[in-house]
Amino acid sequence: MLLGYINGIVQDPKKSEDHLIAILTSFVKDVVVLPEKSRLNIWLELRQYAQSKLTLYTAKSHQSNLDQSIHNGKLDLLDDLQKKIFCAVYYHGKSIQYLAATIGCDESEIRNQLKLSIDKMRRASGN
């Protein structure tokens, strides 16, 4: 799961594997997982931790990666704009304000497209 996420950012299977090892070992070192935390919370925390560890990487390659179409299961259900917004948020942690400025539409539209893209993928999973 995490490897798929990292590969979405790094776009290189070998480098992704190296990052996976580095991120998981440093996560164990840096983050105290409290017993009351659910598995879901841990995944969200792990994903955000991975994103924070790859910030320099994503900041450098964000522009080039945005235009690449990632053929990754449910992402193919999205149209180009939705894919662009979803990938920028999910993999690169870009804010609504940033996307509104770079894409050239208002924040409510970005928010709406993000929601639509998530809804589309959830529906495809039968939820």
């Binding site: 799961m1 996420y5 590969n7 995944w43 969200l44 449910k74 992402l75 993928m121 959830r122 999973s125």
Partner: peptide, 19 residues
């Protein structure tokens, strides 16, 4: 909570088997 769960399922569906 449902959305969080669905996001995890989504991540699972986009997962890659580690070498």
């Amino acid at each position: 909570e449902q959305l969080e769960y669905d996001m995890e399922l989504l991540a699972q569906s986009m997962g890659i088997e580690p070498p």
